[in-house]
Design a protein around this nucleic acid. Structure first.
Length: 576
RNA sequence: CGGGGUGUAGCUCAGCUUGGUAGAGCACCACGUUCGGGACGUGGGGGUCGUAGGUUCAAAUCCUGUCACCCCGACCA
């Protein structure tokens, strides 16, 4: 492709509302344009990247024996009413009516549609297992779309659904999908990790997430060096404290702490570590009352763990400041478990503290030297906190490390949640109707484009991995319009490179070199050749990889072979 | 949905307090000079100042409504 024949829509400045780097760079590089909140148009260069991601996903799904179909983005309400999700899903489901006033929605996911299809088409156990997938636009009317493509309302997703007669068969396909996802993310050339995940409100039991590692990621994932343990922080169990609780040394004292509310303020003022303080969080209880969750001052509440407590309301919600004031007579910064007349649940490590500091349930006062069992009753303990770096893995595989990740894939063993409600069953060998067991497997195709940029960028712009770059190679001739000699060197090579299966972007604009360099770097083309009169005098052109510091001179006659050797993706990415 | 913010040229923004001819940089067009890391000069095109109403001789500017977008909190690929 020539730059004069495509749309190079680069910009020097990003719109002020683009917050994350991938959003800024996608706009500046001219990959996307915003149409409305969370809704984007893909420009030619961006679409090439999206299509490459899609293609790799498709090839590997096909290889794994999944069958591609395409389901409508618009879905009739009846099926959602049948599964019970029409009422459950809330405003995130964009509902619409046709001219006959029939209810529809824009599909945020396709469980209902596929389950309906399968229950009509598959009658016999002999047709199982089955695994169907599609790559389709989804729509979720997020309360707050943000971060550009990363969390758009409209996005492209690969979703697959498998159907089984037995749990064993489900586990086999689940394993196959796990392996397939691993291949897919390896082929992208992105640093990623698969972790155990919370199955959330989709239901089912086993579930793994695939995360692209990036410091800007919204999720925290936890793993050990051996790799034996890997999980989302949401469901990483914290180790039980190794030491028993020390014997009390201090006596209980009430000290004035006027104006001090946060753990930091209190601990600094009283000259103790945050780990020696307790923080008390009051949440709404399941029966309408209040529940106090108590953590060590240096620990953070884990919402998923808290929601698993039978006394705590789901979803977890903090009690309002007004309600807390009404109940305890103090504001949030002065709460503590002493003489608190609501149920108290302490994190294990908070339960092991002795001589600790906590709020006195009276504004401007804290207690010091507090001890469980002496100054207040022994607490009920539970695992409530997020693990921290250095905690020990409960499976004994070492100490935990924490990284940030962007969730780009999620696989679930769904079970019979949908098949039961929608009566999707087949006849087994004995002629008996058996409810289908389901798995589902998602990949955020468009999100991967953004995640790749979050992970791979520098001052100059995007740095695409070869496998998903819009073009493999940029050709930059310097002042070609003035030199017949350059044209005679560049144009035949441009042709040869394309014939060799290399995707080339030839910059034939009448621009100064600096402009061309800057644009190709911003767009993130991973390899480039520069042609100049000076180089041609010696029969060489200049090569530079996008991450390279130095330039390499390459004989023009060996240019094709040189770049083919660099592009391992040409070989490894194809399969028979 | 609650809290906050912003709407002026394709992008970044000034002008608004104190009403009086709509601006700058980048981008775009033409010509000239430049020419291996986002050149320079001259000339030019482009804006119902988000939108509706009000106050006023006069509104980008003051008032009211409304819409859009963005940021902070509860979901998710």
């Amino acid at each position: 492709m020539r730059t004069t024949q495509t749309l190079i829509a680069t910009q020097r400045e990003a719109p002020a509302d683009a917050e994350v780097i991938s959003h800024q760079l996608m706009l500046r590089a001219g990959l996307i344009r915003q149409l409305a909140a969370g809704i984007y148009t893909w420009l030619p260069l961006g679409l090439r990247v999206l299509r490459k991601v899609e293609r790799i996903v498709r090839e590997e799904m096909d290889r794994a024996g999944a069958l591609e179909i395409l389901m409508s983005g618009v879905q009739p309400a009846e099926l959602w009413q049948e599964s019970g999700r029409w009422d459950k899903y809330g405003p995130e489901l964009l509902r619409l009516q046709d001219r006959h006033e029939r209810q529809f929605c824009l599909g945020p996911t396709h469980e209902e549609i596929i389950t309906d299809l399968i229950r009509r088409e598959i009658r016999s156990y002999k047709q199982l297992p089955a695994n169907y997938y599609q790559i389709q636009t989804k729509f979720r009317d997020e309360i707050r779309p943000r971060f550009g493509i990363m969390r758009a309302r409209e996005f492209l997703m690969k979703d697959a659904y498998s159907f089984h007669l037995t749990e064993q068969s489900l586990r086999e396909t689940y394993q196959l999908m796990y392996a397939t996802y691993t291949r897919i993310f390896q082929r992208f050339g992105l640093e990623f990790r698969a972790v155990l995940a919370d199955s959330g409100n989709i239901g089912g039991n086993t579930s793994h997430e695939f995360h692209v590692l990036a410091d800007s990621g919204e999720d925290r994932i936890v793993f050990t060096d051996s790799g034996d343990f890997a999980a989302n922080i949401e469901l990483t169990p914290a180790p039980l404290p190794a030491q028993p609780r020390p014997a009390p040394q201090q006596t209980l004292a009430k000290v004035a702490t006027p104006g001090l509310a946060s753990i930091d303020e209190v601990s600094q003022s009283l000259k103790v570590t945050p780990a020696q303080c307790l923080k008390t969080l009051i949440v709404n209880g399941r029966e309408g009352g209040l529940v106090a969750l108590v953590l060590r001052g240096d620990h953070e509440l884990n919402r998923v763990k808290a929601e698993k407590l039978v006394t705590v309301a789901r979803p977890l919600s903090f009690a309002s400041a007004a309600r807390i004031k009404e109940h305890t007579g103090c504001s949030i910064g002065s709460l503590g478990p002493v003489a608190l007349d609501i149920p108290v649940i302490a994190d294990h490590s908070a339960g092991r503290l002795a001589d600790f500091v906590c709020g006195a349930n009276s504004d401007g006062y804290h207690y010091t030297g507090v001890n469980w069992g002496r100054d207040l009753s022994e607490p009920d303990c539970a695992d409530l906190r997020n693990v921290v770096t250095g905690d020990v893995a409960v499976d004994g595989s070492g100490t935990l490390k924490i990284a940030r990740g962007i969730e780009v894939g999620h696989i679930f063993q769904l079970g019979t949640v949908y098949s039961e409600k929608m009566q999707a069953n087949v006849l087994d060998e004995t002629g008996k109707a058996v409810t289908l067991i389901m798995g589902c497997y998602g990949i955020g195709v468009s999100r991967i484009v953004a995640a790749a940029i979050e992970q791979n960028n520098d001052e100059q712009g995007i740095i695409w991995p070869d496998a998903i770059a819009p073009y493999h190679l940029a050709l930059i001739p310097i002042h070609m319009h003035k030199s017949q000699r350059l044209r005679d060197a560049v144009l035949p090579l441009y042709q040869q490179l394309q014939d060799a299966g290399i995707e080339v972007l030839l910059d034939d604009r009448r621009e100064r070199p600096g402009v061309m360099f800057a644009d190709m770097e911003l767009i993130g083309i991973p390899h480039r050749f520069v042609f100049s009169e000076k180089g041609l005098d010696h029969g060489v052109i200049e090569y530079k990889g996008r991450r390279d510091k130095e330039i390499t001179e390459v004989p023009i006659t060996g240019a094709v072979a040189f770049i083919r050797a660099k592009l391992t993706v040409l070989k490894s990415n194809r399969y028979p």
